[in-house]
Amino acid sequence: MNALPLLRIGDVLLVSIQTELHDELALRFQRELAEKVADEHIRGVIIDISALEIVDSFLGRVLHDIAATTSVLAARTVVVGMRPAVAITLVELGLSLHGLRTALNVEAGLRQLGIRRLDVSGEAR
């Protein structure tokens, strides 16, 4: 079973993290995502963290590593929906997440991946 449900829209993967992840689960998610991106020729990944009340340095690193790995696999990752309190805390913690693409919400994330609209069939254009 997958660590987290991955929703495929065209050649974009959408993941919404709805529960607190413990470390091992976060690492499994990282592995599975990389495999899926490689196997299925994914072009973009959107990780929605708007439900997360905290992101600590461990999860921050996992997100950063996912972005770096997918980039090697020729896909782009956008992390969307980080809450203000989480962002302030990460800055204080000293985690800058350089090179990580971010967007306010899923729509803005899709736009950043160059997808303007979605067909009824779910095909991304």
């Binding site: 956008v78 992390v79 929906g81 980080m82 962002a87 302030i88 990460l90 800055v91 204080e92």
Partner: peptide, 12 residues
């Protein structure tokens, strides 16, 4: 500076 960095992490 922190405000700018936090806003960026949120995608703004």
């Amino acid at each position: 500076l922190k405000t700018v960095m936090a806003a960026r992490m949120m995608g703004a």
